[in-house]
Amino acid sequence: MAAGGDHGSPDSYRSPLASRYASPEMCFVFSDRYKFRTWRQLWLWLAEAEQTLGLPITDEQIQEMKSNLENIDFKMAAEEEKRLRHDVMAHVHTFGHCCPKAAGIIHLGATSCYVGDNTDLIILRNALDLLLPKLARVISRLADFAKERASLPTLGFTHFQPAQLTTVGKRCCLWIQDLCMDLQNLKRVRDDLRFRGVKGTTGTQASFLQLFEGDDHKVEQLDKMVTEKAGFKRAFIITGQTYTRKVDIEVLSVLASLGASVHKICTDIRLLANLKEMEEPFEKQQIGSSAMPYKRNPMRSERCCSLARHLMTLVMDPLQTASVQWFERTLDDSANRRICLAEAFLTADTILNTLQNISEGLVVYPKVIERRIRQELPFMATENIIMAMVKAGGSRQDCHEKIRVLSQQAASVVKQEGGDNDLIERIQVDAYFSPIHSQLDHLLDPSSFTGRASQQVQRFLEEEVYPLLKPYESVMKVKAELCL
């Protein structure tokens, strides 16, 4: 049975990233139509530049190519590739079939990587351009969430054990800070992308030097003109047959890092959902379990974690691919890159769409948070109580021993009897502590235990987050809708 299948058929496997999760716009960027249309555009740009620099290419040939950029006979191309065992030459023939007058000058002087690699770089750039505003929107939604809850005390956790208090907004800023680093890295790697350009079979530009009869300047002009037509500021000066596969490492490393950030955020949300302090959106008709109707599973956060793990592992592909590119190139890269580049971007696209949807509907339960604080705060307040007693004339050592005994009794009630923490009640009825009984409410005010959390939130948002989001103001209103 021949390899390949009808990918629109229910009898043929289709990647869930495309069929179930990723956005239509990201799927289109990695589609065959987008790819092969870009090949034709690159052939047109090459012909236009070659004509401008004096090669015998007519206006009629150029116009014929322009008129057929979208006229792609995919069936013919597939048949040609089956016959020739070469995808680029299959599309040269297919393009030439609908451009008979231009057929002889299509791909003039070029090698397969002229269309293959340059198209990949265009796709990487455009895919990054799709991700950047999506990530900015996630940051914006979380920034709104953090600002609104900047002063809401909550129990902090280290080692997932109760620690000092923080605020809900401050905790959210930990998430935002990681995503801001990801946004900066995505922008950097996007701006650092260079075009492969017009380089020939081993990167020496020998074929173009021959076409222009040894004119170095025209060869350099050709490279520059096509690079500018493709919208790049610069091209690699040095290439082998391909652009260095280190570029793929750079791009997928940034995406993998984004995956790590999203995994951490969504894990926190899942843990908070278990504590009943916070939940992701839950639709009115949504079913959490087929057997347990009360369940409210954090399905979206779980999906993000599941896909983020996949995204983090994909960076190993370009690392290994770059390491086995012998001399000017081997074909070890080809099949692998067809999979890992598309999957990385479709996965990143999915987790950003999902995280935006989550961040637009996060639900906080202040009463649950308050109750958990009441359970733990008495123990945390013991040092403040000791200091207040010393100020009232008591002995630190005597007070410490009193607190120690009462704390152990209260802990026994919590752990052995399943009761509430009654340390404060014990202190309130103990005559030894009568000098500070009137101060206990103040000493137990949760806001006095959150330090500068709310001020940190305000400063972080104003100095770091809002300036970073400013270039994306025009796209901030787009909502994230999930079908599944």
Rank of each mutant, 00 (worst) to 15 (best):
L331G: 04
T321P: 07
S306Y: 09
L341N: 12
S151A: 08
E70L: 15
R426H: 15
L124W: 11
D268G: 15
D59Y: 09
H97K: 03
C98R: 07
G394C: 09
R40T: 11
E283S: 15
N297K: 10
C304E: 14
L132Q: 05
I351R: 06
Q164V: 10
E328M: 03
G203M: 04
E148S: 04
L311T: 13
V390C: 02
W45P: 08
M292D: 15
Y13H: 14
A381I: 00
D223G: 06
T227M: 07
Q286R: 05
T154Y: 00
P24F: 12
P471H: 10
R85A: 03
C305A: 09
R270M: 04
I249W: 14
T450P: 14
Q408M: 12
E25G: 13
C113L: 11
R196Q: 11
M389A: 00
R194E: 01
Q428H: 15
Y21W: 05
I287V: 09
D120H: 09
Q161S: 03
N421L: 11
I373N: 15
S140K: 15
D215S: 00
S112R: 06
E70W: 05
V478C: 15
L341T: 05
G109L: 01
S395I: 01
S257R: 12
D117K: 03
A308W: 05
C305L: 08
F28E: 07
S447M: 12
A273R: 08
L55I: 11
Q210P: 06
N384F: 04
S334A: 02
I436C: 11
N353P: 04
E79M: 03
E70A: 10
A308Y: 09
S253T: 13
G96M: 11
D332A: 06
A47C: 01
G4A: 10
R296F: 08
I106E: 03
P366Q: 12
G451M: 00
Q286T: 04
V115N: 09
L319V: 09
S447E: 11
A308P: 02
P281H: 13
P24V: 09
T119I: 04
C483R: 12
W326A: 08
A392Y: 01
Q456N: 12
L108Y: 12
I237L: 03
I427T: 14
A22Y: 14
I351P: 02
F236T: 08
T350C: 10
E250L: 13
Q439Y: 14
E81G: 04
S306G: 09
L444K: 13
H91G: 03
V115P: 10
R374S: 14
M299T: 12
W39K: 05
L484M: 14
D223R: 14
R374A: 02
Q241A: 03
L165K: 11
K264C: 02
Q409T: 05
A453C: 07
T167C: 06
Y294C: 11
S207R: 04
P378D: 14
L468F: 05
S12Y: 15
A260N: 14
Y13G: 07
S67A: 00
M292F: 14
G393A: 02
F30D: 09
A381R: 05
L179N: 02
A2V: 05
A260K: 07
D117V: 07
S261K: 07
R337C: 05
M65I: 13
R452F: 12
L46P: 02
V405P: 02
C173M: 05
L132K: 10
E80C: 12
T347V: 11
T167V: 06
Y114T: 01
S9I: 12
C99W: 02
E283R: 05
E481L: 13
P378H: 02
E343Y: 15
L183E: 01
Q397T: 07
P446R: 14
N297R: 10
V262Q: 09
I436Q: 12
I238L: 07
R329S: 09
K276C: 00
L42C: 00
E417S: 11
S323H: 08
L222H: 02
D317E: 14
L193C: 14
F30S: 04
G96K: 05
F433R: 11
A335L: 11
M316Y: 02
D129S: 08
D144I: 11
D445T: 13
S140E: 05
K224E: 00
A103H: 07
S151C: 02
A273D: 15
T239D: 01
E79V: 03
Q458L: 07
A102L: 07
D445I: 00
P56K: 03
S448Q: 09
T166K: 10
A260R: 02
P446C: 01
I339K: 08
A110R: 10
I237Q: 07
T119C: 07
V262F: 13
T350M: 05
P471F: 01
D317Y: 01
S207L: 04
Y34T: 02
I339T: 11
L69E: 03
R141V: 06
D120R: 04
G8E: 06
L142K: 13
R296Y: 04
M292A: 15
P471S: 09
R196T: 05
L193R: 06
G259H: 00
P162V: 01
I106A: 09
T321N: 00
V413F: 01
K367D: 12
N118S: 02
C99G: 04
S301G: 14
R85W: 12
G419T: 15
A342V: 05
C483S: 13
Y472F: 14
C340V: 15
P378E: 13
F433K: 08
P471Q: 12
G214R: 11
E81W: 04
T166L: 12
S15F: 07
T111H: 05
Q375W: 05
V251L: 12
R374T: 14
S448R: 08
L468C: 15
K218F: 11
V247T: 04
F30C: 02
S19H: 15
A49T: 09
L69T: 01
V92K: 03
K75E: 05
H7G: 14
E383T: 08
W326I: 07
T313E: 08
K35M: 01
S12V: 15
R426V: 05
G104H: 15
T347S: 13
V390I: 14
V226P: 12
A163W: 03
Q456D: 06
R137E: 12
R196N: 08
E279L: 07
P471I: 15
Q375C: 13
E328L: 10
T111G: 06
E481C: 14
G259I: 02
P100W: 09
N384H: 10
N357S: 12
L482S: 13
E250N: 12
G156F: 02
L42D: 15
T154K: 03
S261P: 14
V138L: 13
Q455T: 11
R188A: 15
A291P: 07
P435G: 11
I139Y: 10
P100D: 06
A103R: 06
V189Q: 15
D182N: 04
L252P: 15
P162A: 09
A22T: 14
D11M: 14
V363I: 09
A18K: 15
E425V: 08
T111P: 11
S253R: 11
